[in-house]
Design a protein around this nucleic acid. Structure first.
Lengths: 226, 226
DNA sequence: CGGCGATTTGATAATGGTCAAGTGCCGTGG
DNA sequence: CCACGGCACTTGACCATTATCAAATCGCCG
């Protein structure tokens, strides 16, 4: 046993609390944003080319990934409902990543102009977005360490811990159980492993009584200890 | 041969140009910042505890790393002169990383208050810092892919490409040659490999005529093709 | 019931890790 | 100036984790 992500999980939780320190007025301003709702099918790209808008995941789950010319893919982040993404495009016009839906998603797009107006009108919201970016950075760093320095077992455990912590933060987990709408092949792309090895590692975690999985593809996931 | 980082390198260069689009007035404002200069010996932590100031690397080189309870270490970023770091601490008060010098460094510390005043006075500087954070994020993502999906040879090549590109951007490289004040053990911590394997991989790159290295520890590095 | 994608399993190979023992470089002190 | 000591680098032998290839089996959705 080699799971060292307890403290990391705690950090993530604390950060999520930090980011929600926004007043009701400001929440209203956010709710009044002109937002284009869009239902997107599973496994579709959400942004392409040079985006002119940011977006929020309203329902469903998404991922951010990079692909290499050889076709190999690395998922670098998962997104749960409530995540505001592609703020990057407000400030940079190179897009180094692909963002795609996992299951079908409801996405809310916000034009850059509206985002800039929102930030200009309320520095605290700008700060919140700024914080959100910094938190994303911290999670990227965590992922670098995850794939760089943990073996398959701990790496898998960490990804699952992060997932359930974020699902809890989004109010989508009860009793350490939640959806896990991620295929083993996608878990492989997130952990830098092969599908086969992901399967074997999940088997090990199950045998050791650390997780339970039910169903296929749109699995139900349960961590057997907090 | 499996080097796929050419386009990444180009991306990084473009981004560095983007970030330097600051007027002379604004440069003056930056130069007038109250800055505490400090010479720090090699292999010392630059920030600890809960920092109350950001800093810039003025001379020398530094790294950002994370350590696991087992003692394993992952370097997640290198810093060259001109890099402004720990802007994170302006917005988050958890520090998930350690920043340390590689060789001795000259560091300029700036109190948070001064930074906030600077940002408030000049939105373009705030934007530049914001961009810088987003670029850092992009590089973290690149590192996730690097350790997750490339083999040792390509991984090493990518780190070295990034290094020389950044050294060029900092004006510290001529003819694809520059300092490389990083030990093989540090390269191992950056690539998620062992020191032994770093050594063998560097040997391979040398045999293949892709790089030249001279001296020890504070090596001179040269990429034999652009 | 049929079909397809996802999961599971087995056998084998390879990349990279571990352990151990040098070699070389460079600064320090006599 | 030279010997010493420490750290970085190098190399060899062997081992382990993880990848690869191939073939089931399962589960879900017409």
């Amino acid at each position: 046993m080699n799971i060292t992500s307890g403290s990391d999980a705690a950090t993530i939780i604390r950060d999520f609390e930090t980011i929600f320190k926004i007043s009701e007025d400001e929440k209203a301003a956010i709710n009044n944003l002109p937002m284009q709702l869009s239902d997107i099918r599973a496994d579709q790209d959400i942004v392409r080319g040079r985006p002119s808008r940011c977006f929020a995941v309203l329902e469903g789950f998404a991922s951010t990934s990079k692909v290499m010319v050889e076709g190999k893919r690395q998922i670098v982040a998962f997104h749960v409902p409530g995540d505001v993404r592609d703020v990057q495009s407000l400030h940079l016009d190179v897009l180094d990543i692909t963002m795609s839906t996992l299951p079908p998603c409801k996405i809310g797009f916000v034009q850059h102009e509206a985002m800039r107006a929102l930030c200009a009108g309320s520095p605290r919201i700008a700060d919140a977005l700024w914080r959100d970016t910094l938190i994303s950075s911290a999670i990227f760093r965590e992922w670098v360490m995850n794939v760089g320095r943990r073996d398959a077992y701990a790496r898998m455990a960490h990804i699952l811990c992060e997932w359930i912590v974020r699902m809890k933060a989004a109010g989508l987990a009860k009793d350490h159980a939640c959806e896990l709408p991620i295929t083993q092949s996608e878990l492989a792309d997130a952990t830098g492993m092969t599908t086969v090895h992901v399967n074997r590692t999940l088997m090990d975690l199950r045998k050791d009584g650390l997780i339970e999985l039910k169903g296929s593809k749109r699995r139900l996931f349960r961590a057997t200890s907090p």
